[in-house]
Design a binder for these strands. Structure first.
Length: 193
DNA sequence: CAATAGATCATCT
DNA sequence: GATGATCTATTGC
């Protein structure tokens, strides 16, 4: 596995980072997967983002230096993994919505309690469970670990498709969701194709 | 197949 | 006290 992506990768707009993350590999322990679906969350003006209403203890990390993990609990049940973008002081992050499992498949199956590979990590709450990512990982540096993001082992050409974000009620019309067109591991509830 | 109900809690008001 | 950037099981065609 190649070294993690440098902090400069994340030091740019959240939309750019969201697009650039497609095809990259996120790893935690022995488990890893290729990112196939992302969403960008901006700062003030994007009322769907947690950082829209300023700094709180939880959202502090989104305003901090790029290349860190922002993990939060949703619906009392599931953790969601974001990667912080933008220079320090500027809010913006990228939600990882789906990955294609690459390594540690048996451990992922055990953590998830399902066998079918297509369904192991094709959703934001599923992939954190498959990778063993928890709330306590919020604020950790993904250029150092334990969660890391790497270039793919083999660079394969991809076509990026764009749509509106899923599951939100505010700012629901912005084209800020990005996914690899035709990839079978993109989450359902999608306007894929 | 589509629609819906319920689980469950950190965070913010 | 209200609110979710979700998922699964179950119901009803």
């Amino acid at each position: 596995m190649q070294p993690p992506l440098p902090r400069s990768f994340y030091t740019r707009g959240a939309v750019q980072v969201a697009r650039a993350l497609l095809g990259k590999v996120v790893a935690h322990g022995q488990t890893s997967g290729t990112i196939v679906e992302t969403e960008a969350y901006l700062g003030p003006g994007d009322d769907a983002s947690h950082s829209a209403r300023g700094i709180t203890p939880r959202t502090r990390v989104i305003f901090g230096p790029p290349g860190h993990a922002y993990v939060y609990l949703i619906y009392g049940m599931y953790e969601c993994l974001n990667l912080v973008a933008e220079p320090e002081g500027v809010p913006g992050c990228v939600l990882i919505r789906a990955i294609e499992p690459v390594s540690g498949l048996d451990q992922m199956r055990r953590r998830r309690g399902v066998a079918r590979i297509e369904v192991l990590a094709n959703g934001p709450g599923k992939l954190t469970r498959a990778l063993g990512i928890h709330l306590r990982h919020s604020g950790t540096d993904v250029t150092r670990g334990p969660i890391t993001v790497h270039p793919p082992a083999r660079d394969t050409p991809i076509e990026i498709a764009v749509s509106t974000r899923i599951g939100i009620t505010k700012c629901a019309d912005l084209p800020l969701r990005f996914f690899i067109r035709g990839n079978p591991y993109v989450s359902r509830g999608s306007g894929a194709s």
